[in-house]
Amino acid sequence: MLRTLDGGAHWQALHVPGAEALDFRDIEGFSADRAVVLSIGPGADSRIYRTEDGGRSWQLALQNADPRAFFDCMAFRGERGWMLGDPVDGAFQLHATNDGGRTWVLQPGAMPTARKDEAAFAASGTCIATTPWGGRMIVGGGGAARAYVDAADAAEPGTAGDANLDASWSAYATPMPARVPAAGIFSAAPAGGDMLLVGGDFEHEAAPGSAALAQRREDGSLVVSGLPDPRGYRSGVACAGDVQPRCIAVGPSGVDVLIDGRWQALSDTGYDAIDVAGNVGWASGDKGRVARIEIGAKAPASE
């Protein structure tokens, strides 16, 4: 892991003692010093660590004890957070925290039944996301490319997810293709008042990817419409702005920006994950590659 305090001019390498062999896929920062990180893998390799001193020390907050389970991704709204795991006994696992990731509780019975071979993708840590209308969304693939939203989405904005950790969820079909074990929806992100979904097939990285827009109806249900395909499989997406959001999608074959409903090439360099802070996007890839992307009214510029 890497940490910067000056906008990317200088970087500090962080190490979690005893976790050198783990595969970290998600990090959620609360301040310059407080963060939680998620490692993935079968059995005990799936873990969550937390730091309160900028990475000088780490505490193990959660370790998977079920050999059937596999952690995938996290999302937070303030101190409230949720961690998604692949289906066990036919349903996705959902852990929740009320204290910024210090303690986690499995929410039994919260998810609807998963289809055969349906799972989430841990590629970028963004298979669960908070929504603009105050709820949460889960996306996946394999046996089905569906989007799940919690019933609390029907509440007033800002209250969903803060009232009931055991809220029920509804599943919605999408026009995005699925294939076991490699194709489906990999990432979801708020895009103005909607949710943008991207994906593809990680076994065919250069083949056209897939994308869709999920919009919330007045009754709280969703309508999911297909968008033009990005150039290749895209594992992560993030957006800046509320009225006319600019969205950046990344994948091993390059980076695209969504402008006026169509994807335009931004870079042919591959990245795996992206997040946005203000009008700056941060993309990460293999071999420690990091890109800073300025997102403005015009087409974004990568550095």
Rank of each mutant, 00 (worst) to 15 (best):
A211T: 09
V255D: 07
G81S: 09
D72V: 11
A32E: 11
L84C: 10
W169M: 06
C127T: 04
V290L: 13
L222Y: 09
V180H: 13
S302R: 06
D153Q: 14
D256A: 07
F92A: 12
E303R: 14
R262I: 00
G296I: 00
A299I: 02
R77T: 10
E20M: 00
D219Q: 07
D272Q: 15
V36F: 08
M74Y: 09
V37L: 12
A214Y: 01
A19M: 08
V223P: 08
Q107D: 03
M74I: 12
D162I: 00
R77A: 14
A211W: 02
D26P: 02
D242P: 05
N64L: 09
W169T: 07
V255G: 07
R25W: 12
G232M: 11
A35S: 13
P300H: 00
T269W: 00
V16P: 13
L106R: 13
G241V: 01
T113K: 15
R34S: 14
G54I: 06
C73D: 15
G193H: 04
V105W: 02
R3F: 05
L227Q: 07
A301D: 02
D6A: 13
D286K: 09
G281S: 10
G125I: 05
G109P: 09
G41K: 05
D23L: 11
R25K: 12
A96P: 02
Q244N: 14
I259N: 02
G100C: 08
P300C: 04
A183C: 05
A240N: 07
A182H: 12
E79F: 00
G241N: 03
A191V: 03
Q63A: 15
G192S: 03
E79W: 00
A297D: 12
R231T: 04
M83K: 04
A277H: 11
R146K: 10
P17R: 02
D33Y: 04
D229N: 14
A211H: 04
P230I: 01
T269K: 13
A160L: 02
T103S: 15
S187Y: 02
D272A: 14
D45H: 08
A145S: 15
A65Q: 14
